[in-house]
Amino acid sequence: MSSVTALNGATSNGIINVADAGLMGMITLRGDLASAGMAKAVKAATGSPMPAMRQITTGKSGAAAWMSSDELLLMVDYADADAVVAKISKSLGAAHHLAVNVSDARAVFNLPGDQIRDVLAKGSPADMSNDAFPIGEVRRTRIGQLAVAFWFTDAQNAKLVCFRSVGGHIMRWLENASEIGSEVGFH
């Protein structure tokens, strides 16, 4: 059986474009982020250093996003996720932690465009200004009434993650919020 994303390749073109980001390996990793063992496990899994508060770091084989003071979201190749989880568990051993493959429990969007901040601000109370939310930070907030996390990969591109079960709703929300003619011109 082959894997499919919640969005199944959906795209829309408006004042920003919205696209299914395809299959992405995602691992929830919880534990003591200040410990040397955790930093080592993150480095081995993604090639990236331990992210500081609200930061996302990238490395040769993935990225690590700070979700809370004891939780990270690791992003790796979809096919590698289970093996990476096994590696992390082995490396952390008896240290109190949780590592789980959540790849199929999430939906991921690519959002290319130069009005991303304006579009996301239509549904989220997060401060979308460049000063408050620079490239390299992850923001966990809501869109409408749904929990999401998003971050900018550069000035023209953002990624957004939500729960798989509400992927379709977020797709329709983003499509609607980026309708041609609905430009805001604030950010």
Binding site: M53, R54, S68, S69, P125, A126, D127, T141
Partner: peptide
């Protein structure tokens, strides 16, 4: 104080 974000009431 856990993440440093000044959050709107509706995020809380």
């Amino acid at each position: 104080p856990n993440c440093g974000i000044t959050a709107d009431e509706t995020d809380l």
